[in-house]
Every structure is written in structure tokens, then in C-alpha cells.
Amino acid sequence: MSNQEPPKIEFPCPDYPIKTLGVASDEFLDVVLAVMDKHAPGFDRDKLEVRASSKGKFQSYTVYITATGIEQLQAIHEDLKKHPGTRMVM
């Protein structure tokens, strides 16, 4: 095993990806976008990536934001995890 530390993020960090996996629904997408609007206002909605699972039950959303600090990233993660349809946040 290596004792290397993960690379440090330099803030602000443009085009920082936030990926969320959840139950496919328009409501879940609205929640993801609302959380991003709250914590990363002005993010580029045109860069939103949507992928459906093979059976269509789940969808992943990748949003690219300008990350301003670890506190912002933690707040986004916490707010996304509060939704019952969320399965994973990366």
C-alpha cells in the first residue's frame, strides 16, 4: 500500500464534476438542479450530462461547477444525500 496523499484541489476549481445517481424521475432532476443553484449559482446547465441505467430505473446526473471550497462541496453532498431518491453522490 502507498502512503501517498490524494492530490490537493486548488480553489476555485472550474469544471469540477459532481455526479449523482438516483431513482429516475423529473422530481429528482429538479432536486439536483435546485441544490446546484443554491450552492453553485450560475453553473452551466448546458453541460449537464444525463445517463439512464440499462433498465431505466435509475439515472445519473453529472453537473460541472466552479468549486469554491471544501465547505461548498460538503454542503452539496449533504443536501443531495437528504433526498430519498438519491443512491450515490460522487
Rank of each mutant, 00 (worst) to 15 (best):
G69M: 10
L33S: 04
D15H: 08
C13S: 15
E5G: 13
S2I: 10
V23A: 05
M88E: 06
P17V: 01
N3P: 08
Y61C: 01
H83S: 00
E27L: 02
R45D: 11
Y61N: 02
Y64D: 08
P14L: 03
G85I: 03
H83N: 01
K47E: 10
M1K: 14
G22T: 00
D30K: 11
K47T: 10
E71Q: 14
K81L: 10
K38L: 10
G85T: 07
Q4T: 14
H83L: 00
D46A: 15
V35N: 12
M88P: 05
S2C: 12
A24C: 03
D46P: 10
S2Q: 14
S25I: 00
A40K: 09
D15T: 04
P12Q: 06
T86W: 03
Q72D: 02
T68S: 09
G42W: 09
F28S: 02
G69L: 07
M1C: 13
T86H: 02
R51E: 12
G42D: 08
I9E: 09
K55V: 08
D15G: 03
E27C: 00
Q74K: 15
G42I: 05
M1S: 15
L80G: 02
R51I: 05
V35G: 08
L21R: 00
F28P: 02
C13A: 15
D44Q: 13
Q59F: 10
A34G: 14
K82E: 02
T86S: 01
E27F: 00
Y64H: 14
G22V: 00
M36F: 04
P6R: 10
I65Y: 13
